[in-house]
Design a protein around this nucleic acid. Structure first.
Length: 377
RNA sequence: GUGCGAUUAGUUCAGUUGGUAGAGCACCAGAUUGUGGUUCUGGGUGUCGUGGGUUCGAGCCCCACAUCGCACC
Protein backbone atom coordinates (compact mmCIF):
# COMPACT_ATOMS: atom_id res chain seq x y z
CA UNK A 1 0.00 0.00 0.00
CA UNK A 2 1.40 3.34 -1.05
CA UNK A 3 1.13 5.70 1.90
CA UNK A 4 2.52 8.88 3.40
CA UNK A 5 3.53 9.40 7.01
CA UNK A 6 4.52 12.74 8.48
CA UNK A 7 7.58 12.39 10.70
CA UNK A 8 8.49 15.88 11.96
CA UNK A 9 7.43 19.50 11.69
CA UNK A 10 9.20 22.84 11.97
CA UNK A 11 8.01 25.14 14.77
CA UNK A 12 8.72 28.34 12.82
CA UNK A 13 6.98 27.50 9.54
CA UNK A 14 4.61 25.04 7.89
CA UNK A 15 7.54 22.82 6.86
CA UNK A 16 7.44 19.14 7.69
CA UNK A 17 9.26 15.91 6.95
CA UNK A 18 7.71 12.62 6.01
CA UNK A 19 8.10 9.26 4.34
CA UNK A 20 6.24 8.18 1.24
CA UNK A 21 6.30 4.39 0.93
CA UNK A 22 5.99 2.71 -2.45
CA UNK A 23 6.56 -0.72 -3.91
CA UNK A 24 9.98 0.39 -5.16
CA UNK A 25 11.13 1.93 -1.91
CA UNK A 26 10.69 4.79 0.52
CA UNK A 27 10.94 8.45 -0.37
CA UNK A 28 11.94 10.83 2.37
CA UNK A 29 10.32 14.22 2.04
CA UNK A 30 10.78 17.05 1.30
CA UNK A 31 12.14 15.62 -1.93
CA UNK A 32 13.25 16.81 -5.32
CA UNK A 33 12.47 14.47 -8.23
CA UNK A 34 14.75 14.67 -11.28
CA UNK A 35 12.85 14.81 -14.55
CA UNK A 36 13.39 11.91 -16.95
CA UNK A 37 10.84 12.74 -19.62
CA UNK A 38 11.48 10.08 -22.24
CA UNK A 39 12.97 7.44 -19.98
CA UNK A 40 16.27 9.16 -19.25
CA UNK A 41 17.42 11.95 -16.99
CA UNK A 42 19.27 13.68 -19.80
CA UNK A 43 23.00 13.08 -19.68
CA UNK A 44 23.15 11.27 -16.32
CA UNK A 45 23.87 7.59 -15.64
CA UNK A 46 21.32 5.86 -13.43
CA UNK A 47 24.26 4.68 -11.35
CA UNK A 48 25.20 8.30 -10.61
CA UNK A 49 21.57 9.32 -10.17
CA UNK A 50 21.23 6.77 -7.37
CA UNK A 51 24.67 6.70 -5.75
CA UNK A 52 26.28 10.10 -6.39
CA UNK A 53 23.22 12.34 -6.62
CA UNK A 54 21.03 10.39 -4.23
CA UNK A 55 17.79 10.59 -6.20
CA UNK A 56 15.04 8.60 -4.47
CA UNK A 57 12.49 8.93 -7.27
CA UNK A 58 12.51 10.17 -10.86
CA UNK A 59 9.86 11.25 -13.34
CA UNK A 60 8.72 9.94 -16.68
CA UNK A 61 6.25 11.57 -19.02
CA UNK A 62 3.15 9.89 -20.37
CA UNK A 63 2.80 12.16 -23.39
CA UNK A 64 6.38 11.60 -24.55
CA UNK A 65 6.54 7.87 -23.79
CA UNK A 66 3.16 7.26 -25.41
CA UNK A 67 4.39 8.88 -28.64
CA UNK A 68 7.85 7.32 -28.48
CA UNK A 69 8.72 4.47 -28.08
CA UNK A 70 4.98 3.75 -27.71
CA UNK A 71 2.97 1.57 -25.37
CA UNK A 72 3.62 -1.69 -27.19
CA UNK A 73 7.38 -1.43 -26.66
CA UNK A 74 7.03 -0.45 -23.01
CA UNK A 75 4.65 -3.33 -22.35
CA UNK A 76 7.06 -5.76 -24.03
CA UNK A 77 9.89 -4.38 -21.90
CA UNK A 78 7.89 -5.14 -18.77
CA UNK A 79 7.24 -1.52 -17.84
CA UNK A 80 9.35 1.60 -17.61
CA UNK A 81 11.39 0.50 -14.58
CA UNK A 82 12.78 -2.49 -16.46
CA UNK A 83 13.00 -0.67 -19.77
CA UNK A 84 15.25 2.05 -18.39
CA UNK A 85 16.82 -0.09 -15.62
CA UNK A 86 15.75 2.00 -12.63
CA UNK A 87 14.55 0.06 -9.61
CA UNK A 88 13.59 2.99 -7.38
CA UNK A 89 10.22 4.75 -7.57
CA UNK A 90 8.96 6.48 -10.72
CA UNK A 91 6.25 9.13 -11.03
CA UNK A 92 4.65 9.84 -14.40
CA UNK A 93 3.05 13.08 -15.40
CA UNK A 94 -0.18 12.53 -17.31
CA UNK A 95 0.78 14.56 -20.34
CA UNK A 96 -1.88 17.19 -19.82
CA UNK A 97 0.80 19.84 -19.45
CA UNK A 98 2.58 18.73 -22.64
CA UNK A 99 -0.62 18.94 -24.63
CA UNK A 100 -0.88 22.48 -23.24
CA UNK A 101 2.73 23.47 -23.89
CA UNK A 102 3.93 21.44 -26.90
CA UNK A 103 1.13 20.58 -29.22
CA UNK A 104 0.24 23.27 -31.73
CA UNK A 105 -3.05 21.70 -32.70
CA UNK A 106 -5.20 20.73 -29.77
CA UNK A 107 -8.85 20.65 -28.92
CA UNK A 108 -10.02 20.19 -25.36
CA UNK A 109 -13.54 18.97 -24.70
CA UNK A 110 -15.29 17.36 -21.79
CA UNK A 111 -14.52 14.01 -23.39
CA UNK A 112 -10.76 14.56 -23.35
CA UNK A 113 -8.07 16.35 -25.32
CA UNK A 114 -7.27 15.84 -28.96
CA UNK A 115 -3.79 16.81 -30.04
CA UNK A 116 -1.33 16.29 -32.81
CA UNK A 117 2.12 14.87 -32.17
CA UNK A 118 5.00 17.35 -32.14
CA UNK A 119 7.07 14.56 -33.73
CA UNK A 120 5.12 13.64 -36.84
CA UNK A 121 1.85 15.56 -36.68
CA UNK A 122 -0.20 12.40 -36.18
CA UNK A 123 -3.47 12.90 -34.33
CA UNK A 124 -4.24 11.40 -30.92
CA UNK A 125 -6.64 11.72 -28.05
CA UNK A 126 -6.16 11.46 -24.31
CA UNK A 127 -9.21 10.68 -22.21
CA UNK A 128 -9.14 10.15 -18.43
CA UNK A 129 -9.81 6.47 -19.07
CA UNK A 130 -7.08 5.79 -21.63
CA UNK A 131 -4.68 7.94 -19.59
CA UNK A 132 -5.11 5.56 -16.63
CA UNK A 133 -4.58 2.59 -18.94
CA UNK A 134 -1.46 4.20 -20.39
CA UNK A 135 0.09 4.90 -17.00
CA UNK A 136 -0.74 1.34 -15.95
CA UNK A 137 1.30 0.14 -18.93
CA UNK A 138 4.17 2.46 -18.07
CA UNK A 139 3.96 1.11 -14.54
CA UNK A 140 4.67 4.26 -12.54
CA UNK A 141 4.54 3.96 -8.77
CA UNK A 142 2.77 7.31 -8.71
CA UNK A 143 0.46 8.21 -11.60
CA UNK A 144 -0.86 11.71 -12.15
CA UNK A 145 -4.46 12.50 -13.01
CA UNK A 146 -5.18 14.02 -16.41
CA UNK A 147 -5.84 17.73 -16.00
CA UNK A 148 -5.93 20.93 -17.96
CA UNK A 149 -3.10 23.30 -17.02
CA UNK A 150 -4.58 26.77 -16.96
CA UNK A 151 -2.30 29.69 -18.03
CA UNK A 152 -1.15 31.92 -15.17
CA UNK A 153 -2.86 34.98 -16.64
CA UNK A 154 -6.22 33.34 -17.37
CA UNK A 155 -9.32 35.35 -16.46
CA UNK A 156 -11.72 34.06 -13.86
CA UNK A 157 -14.31 32.80 -16.31
CA UNK A 158 -11.76 30.71 -18.16
CA UNK A 159 -10.16 29.47 -14.93
CA UNK A 160 -13.53 28.42 -13.55
CA UNK A 161 -14.54 26.63 -16.73
CA UNK A 162 -11.15 24.93 -16.96
CA UNK A 163 -11.40 23.79 -13.35
CA UNK A 164 -14.80 22.19 -13.96
CA UNK A 165 -13.31 20.29 -16.88
CA UNK A 166 -10.39 19.07 -14.74
CA UNK A 167 -12.79 18.00 -12.00
CA UNK A 168 -14.95 16.02 -14.40
CA UNK A 169 -11.87 14.31 -15.76
CA UNK A 170 -10.69 13.53 -12.24
CA UNK A 171 -13.93 11.77 -11.36
CA UNK A 172 -13.66 9.58 -14.45
CA UNK A 173 -9.93 9.02 -13.90
CA UNK A 174 -10.53 7.82 -10.34
CA UNK A 175 -13.31 5.50 -11.46
CA UNK A 176 -11.13 3.90 -14.11
CA UNK A 177 -8.23 3.65 -11.68
CA UNK A 178 -10.35 1.70 -9.20
CA UNK A 179 -11.69 -0.56 -11.93
CA UNK A 180 -8.26 -1.39 -13.34
CA UNK A 181 -5.33 -3.42 -12.06
CA UNK A 182 -1.56 -2.98 -12.09
CA UNK A 183 0.09 -4.99 -14.87
CA UNK A 184 3.41 -5.90 -13.29
CA UNK A 185 2.57 -7.24 -9.82
CA UNK A 186 3.21 -4.15 -7.68
CA UNK A 187 0.83 -1.51 -6.42
CA UNK A 188 0.41 1.90 -8.02
CA UNK A 189 -1.27 5.00 -6.64
CA UNK A 190 -2.39 8.23 -8.25
CA UNK A 191 -2.39 11.88 -7.22
CA UNK A 192 -5.28 14.17 -8.13
CA UNK A 193 -4.28 17.69 -9.18
CA UNK A 194 -5.54 20.94 -7.74
CA UNK A 195 -6.10 23.62 -10.38
CA UNK A 196 -7.94 26.95 -10.09
CA UNK A 197 -5.33 29.30 -11.47
CA UNK A 198 -4.61 32.36 -9.29
CA UNK A 199 -8.05 32.56 -7.65
CA UNK A 200 -7.93 31.55 -3.96
CA UNK A 201 -11.59 30.55 -3.70
CA UNK A 202 -11.33 28.39 -6.83
CA UNK A 203 -8.19 26.79 -5.40
CA UNK A 204 -9.89 25.93 -2.13
CA UNK A 205 -12.88 24.51 -3.95
CA UNK A 206 -10.54 22.54 -6.21
CA UNK A 207 -8.64 21.17 -3.20
CA UNK A 208 -11.78 20.06 -1.41
CA UNK A 209 -12.98 18.26 -4.52
CA UNK A 210 -9.61 16.68 -5.28
CA UNK A 211 -9.21 15.42 -1.72
CA UNK A 212 -12.22 13.16 -2.24
CA UNK A 213 -10.09 11.19 -4.67
CA UNK A 214 -6.72 11.42 -2.93
CA UNK A 215 -5.02 8.30 -1.60
CA UNK A 216 -1.46 8.99 -0.39
CA UNK A 217 -0.95 12.40 -1.92
CA UNK A 218 -2.24 15.36 -3.85
CA UNK A 219 -0.65 17.69 -6.38
CA UNK A 220 -0.78 21.42 -6.89
CA UNK A 221 -0.65 22.22 -10.60
CA UNK A 222 -0.96 25.30 -12.72
CA UNK A 223 1.64 27.31 -10.82
CA UNK A 224 4.90 28.78 -12.15
CA UNK A 225 3.14 29.18 -15.48
CA UNK A 226 3.51 32.92 -15.88
CA UNK A 227 2.07 34.34 -12.66
CA UNK A 228 4.28 36.35 -10.24
CA UNK A 229 6.19 34.26 -7.68
CA UNK A 230 4.40 36.00 -4.81
CA UNK A 231 1.07 34.84 -6.22
CA UNK A 232 2.33 31.25 -6.22
CA UNK A 233 3.40 31.55 -2.56
CA UNK A 234 0.03 33.06 -1.68
CA UNK A 235 -1.82 30.14 -3.26
CA UNK A 236 0.33 27.69 -1.28
CA UNK A 237 -0.56 29.53 1.92
CA UNK A 238 -4.26 29.34 1.06
CA UNK A 239 -4.07 25.61 0.34
CA UNK A 240 -1.94 24.53 3.31
CA UNK A 241 -4.72 24.49 5.94
CA UNK A 242 -7.16 22.84 3.52
CA UNK A 243 -5.01 19.77 2.86
CA UNK A 244 -4.78 17.21 5.72
CA UNK A 245 -1.33 16.65 7.18
CA UNK A 246 -1.34 12.98 6.19
CA UNK A 247 -1.35 13.71 2.45
CA UNK A 248 1.91 14.24 0.57
CA UNK A 249 1.77 17.58 -1.30
CA UNK A 250 3.43 17.78 -4.67
CA UNK A 251 4.04 21.20 -6.26
CA UNK A 252 4.36 20.41 -9.96
CA UNK A 253 7.14 21.86 -12.09
CA UNK A 254 8.77 24.03 -9.43
CA UNK A 255 11.37 25.43 -9.46
CA UNK A 256 14.37 27.52 -8.50
CA UNK A 257 16.23 26.58 -5.29
CA UNK A 258 14.59 29.57 -3.60
CA UNK A 259 11.14 28.50 -4.83
CA UNK A 260 11.72 25.05 -3.34
CA UNK A 261 12.71 26.35 0.09
CA UNK A 262 9.80 28.77 0.13
CA UNK A 263 7.52 25.94 -0.96
CA UNK A 264 8.79 23.71 1.84
CA UNK A 265 8.17 26.55 4.29
CA UNK A 266 4.54 26.53 3.10
CA UNK A 267 4.01 22.81 3.61
CA UNK A 268 5.05 21.33 0.24
CA UNK A 269 6.73 17.91 0.26
CA UNK A 270 7.56 17.08 -3.34
CA UNK A 271 9.02 19.04 -6.26
CA UNK A 272 10.14 18.41 -9.80
CA UNK A 273 11.61 20.80 -12.32
CA UNK A 274 13.57 20.76 -15.55
CA UNK A 275 15.61 23.71 -14.36
CA UNK A 276 18.63 21.89 -12.88
CA UNK A 277 19.11 19.82 -16.03
CA UNK A 278 17.98 22.24 -18.74
CA UNK A 279 19.94 25.14 -17.27
CA UNK A 280 22.91 22.82 -16.83
CA UNK A 281 22.92 22.16 -20.57
CA UNK A 282 23.05 25.93 -21.07
CA UNK A 283 26.02 26.34 -18.73
CA UNK A 284 24.28 27.49 -15.55
CA UNK A 285 25.26 25.95 -12.21
CA UNK A 286 23.37 26.28 -8.92
CA UNK A 287 25.55 26.41 -5.80
CA UNK A 288 25.25 27.37 -2.13
CA UNK A 289 26.93 30.69 -2.99
CA UNK A 290 24.67 31.52 -5.94
CA UNK A 291 24.47 30.77 -9.65
CA UNK A 292 27.41 30.54 -12.04
CA UNK A 293 27.30 30.88 -15.83
CA UNK A 294 30.11 28.56 -16.91
CA UNK A 295 30.17 30.10 -20.38
CA UNK A 296 31.41 33.37 -18.93
CA UNK A 297 34.99 34.22 -19.90
CA UNK A 298 35.94 34.86 -16.28
CA UNK A 299 36.23 31.11 -15.62
CA UNK A 300 38.79 30.50 -18.39
CA UNK A 301 41.78 30.52 -16.02
CA UNK A 302 40.09 29.45 -12.79
CA UNK A 303 41.71 26.12 -11.94
CA UNK A 304 39.86 25.66 -8.67
CA UNK A 305 37.28 22.85 -8.25
CA UNK A 306 33.87 23.31 -9.88
CA UNK A 307 32.20 23.67 -6.47
CA UNK A 308 34.27 23.38 -3.28
CA UNK A 309 31.05 22.92 -1.25
CA UNK A 310 29.52 20.41 -3.67
CA UNK A 311 28.73 16.81 -2.74
CA UNK A 312 29.11 15.26 -6.19
CA UNK A 313 32.35 13.68 -7.30
CA UNK A 314 32.35 15.97 -10.34
CA UNK A 315 32.63 19.01 -8.06
CA UNK A 316 36.08 17.93 -6.92
CA UNK A 317 37.32 15.97 -9.94
CA UNK A 318 37.21 18.78 -12.48
CA UNK A 319 38.12 22.47 -12.54
CA UNK A 320 36.05 25.50 -13.52
CA UNK A 321 38.48 26.27 -16.32
CA UNK A 322 38.00 22.77 -17.74
CA UNK A 323 34.21 22.93 -17.54
CA UNK A 324 34.28 26.39 -19.15
CA UNK A 325 36.40 25.01 -21.98
CA UNK A 326 34.00 22.08 -22.52
CA UNK A 327 31.03 24.46 -22.81
CA UNK A 328 32.79 26.79 -25.23
CA UNK A 329 33.89 23.79 -27.28
CA UNK A 330 30.32 22.47 -27.36
CA UNK A 331 31.28 19.13 -25.83
CA UNK A 332 28.43 16.93 -24.58
CA UNK A 333 30.58 16.15 -21.53
CA UNK A 334 29.98 19.73 -20.39
CA UNK A 335 26.22 19.11 -20.20
CA UNK A 336 26.82 15.81 -18.39
CA UNK A 337 29.08 17.34 -15.72
CA UNK A 338 26.81 20.35 -15.19
CA UNK A 339 23.69 18.15 -14.97
CA UNK A 340 25.33 15.89 -12.43
CA UNK A 341 26.41 18.88 -10.37
CA UNK A 342 23.02 20.62 -10.45
CA UNK A 343 21.03 17.51 -9.56
CA UNK A 344 23.44 16.70 -6.75
CA UNK A 345 22.98 20.26 -5.49
CA UNK A 346 19.17 20.08 -5.64
CA UNK A 347 19.14 16.80 -3.75
CA UNK A 348 21.60 18.15 -1.18
CA UNK A 349 19.34 21.20 -0.82
CA UNK A 350 16.32 19.11 0.17
CA UNK A 351 18.45 16.85 2.41
CA UNK A 352 19.64 19.98 4.22
CA UNK A 353 16.05 21.21 4.47
CA UNK A 354 15.03 17.90 6.06
CA UNK A 355 17.86 18.13 8.57
CA UNK A 356 16.89 21.66 9.56
CA UNK A 357 13.21 20.75 9.90
CA UNK A 358 14.19 17.88 12.19
CA UNK A 359 16.47 20.24 14.13
CA UNK A 360 13.63 22.74 14.41
CA UNK A 361 15.48 25.71 12.91
CA UNK A 362 14.28 25.50 9.31
CA UNK A 363 12.63 28.93 9.15
CA UNK A 364 15.69 31.00 10.03
CA UNK A 365 18.00 28.75 8.00
CA UNK A 366 15.70 29.13 4.98
CA UNK A 367 15.71 32.94 5.14
CA UNK A 368 19.50 33.25 5.22
CA UNK A 369 19.97 30.51 2.62
CA UNK A 370 17.55 31.98 0.08
CA UNK A 371 19.58 35.19 0.04
CA UNK A 372 22.82 33.31 -0.66
CA UNK A 373 21.27 31.15 -3.36
CA UNK A 374 19.95 34.09 -5.31
CA UNK A 375 23.31 35.75 -5.96
CA UNK A 376 25.28 35.58 -9.17
CA UNK A 377 28.92 34.61 -8.93
C1' G B 1 59.17 37.21 -64.85
C1' U B 2 54.17 38.58 -67.29
C1' G B 3 48.89 38.90 -66.95
C1' C B 4 44.37 38.60 -64.19
C1' G B 5 41.80 38.50 -59.51
C1' A B 6 41.66 39.37 -54.34
C1' U B 7 42.82 42.28 -49.64
C1' U B 8 36.54 45.43 -45.23
C1' A B 9 34.88 42.71 -37.64
C1' G B 10 37.84 36.77 -34.83
C1' U B 11 36.11 34.27 -39.56
C1' U B 12 33.41 33.85 -44.33
C1' C B 13 31.74 37.72 -47.01
C1' A B 14 28.07 42.14 -48.50
C1' G B 15 28.79 47.30 -49.34
C1' U B 16 24.23 51.08 -54.47
C1' U B 17 25.52 56.93 -59.01
C1' G B 18 31.73 58.73 -54.11
C1' G B 19 28.40 61.11 -48.44
C1' U B 20 33.50 58.07 -42.56
C1' A B 21 30.53 50.56 -42.91
C1' G B 22 26.79 45.77 -42.49
C1' A B 23 25.13 40.09 -42.43
C1' G B 24 25.82 34.78 -41.01
C1' C B 25 28.86 32.08 -37.85
C1' A B 26 32.16 32.94 -33.81
C1' C B 27 32.66 35.90 -29.50
C1' C B 28 30.58 38.72 -25.02
C1' A B 29 26.38 39.03 -21.75
C1' G B 30 21.21 37.82 -20.10
C1' A B 31 16.77 34.60 -19.96
C1' U B 32 15.01 29.50 -19.15
C1' U B 33 9.98 26.48 -13.68
C1' G B 34 4.64 19.09 -14.67
C1' U B 35 12.21 19.14 -20.86
C1' G B 36 11.57 19.07 -28.49
C1' G B 37 19.80 18.02 -26.19
C1' U B 38 16.35 23.24 -27.47
C1' U B 39 15.03 28.16 -27.92
C1' C B 40 14.81 33.26 -27.04
C1' U B 41 16.81 38.40 -25.92
C1' G B 42 20.60 42.07 -26.04
C1' G B 43 25.75 43.61 -27.51
C1' G B 44 29.62 45.34 -33.29
C1' U B 45 34.30 43.87 -31.00
C1' G B 46 36.75 47.92 -37.44
C1' U B 47 43.84 51.95 -38.74
C1' C B 48 38.17 49.15 -44.90
C1' G B 49 46.45 45.76 -46.67
C1' U B 50 50.33 50.18 -46.77
C1' G B 51 51.73 54.99 -48.75
C1' G B 52 50.44 58.86 -51.98
C1' G B 53 46.84 61.46 -55.42
C1' U B 54 41.90 63.44 -57.29
C1' U B 55 37.60 65.51 -54.58
C1' C B 56 34.03 69.84 -50.28
C1' G B 57 34.04 64.53 -49.09
C1' A B 58 37.16 58.02 -50.80
C1' G B 59 35.81 51.21 -48.55
C1' C B 60 34.41 52.80 -53.66
C1' C B 61 38.07 56.69 -58.62
C1' C B 62 43.79 57.12 -60.03
C1' C B 63 49.22 55.74 -59.00
C1' A B 64 52.94 52.95 -56.44
C1' C B 65 54.14 49.15 -53.10
C1' A B 66 53.10 44.66 -50.09
C1' U B 67 50.77 39.97 -49.42
C1' C B 68 47.75 35.89 -51.18
C1' G B 69 45.47 33.06 -55.21
C1' C B 70 45.00 31.56 -60.37
C1' A B 71 46.84 31.34 -65.34
C1' C B 72 50.89 31.76 -68.71
C1' C B 73 56.27 31.81 -69.72
Amino acid sequence: MVNFTKTASDPGSRARTGVLSTAHGEIRTPVFMPVGTVGSVKGVYHRDLADDIGAEIILGNTYHLYLRPGLDIIRQAGGLHKFENWDRPILTDSGGFQVFSLSQIRKITSEGCRFSSHIDGSRHMFTPENNVDTQRIIGADIMMALDECCPGDADRAYASKSLKLTQGWLERYSKRFKESEPLYGYEQTFFPIIQGCTYPDLRVQAAEHALEFSEAGIAIGGLAVGEPTEVMYKILEVLDPVIPQDKARYLMGVGTPANILEGIARGVDMFDCVMPTRNARNGMLFTWEGTMNMRNAKWAEDFSPIDPLGTSFVDHSYTRAYLHHLFIAGEMFAAMLASEHNLAFYLELVRAARAHIEAGDFASWKDSTVKRLSRKI
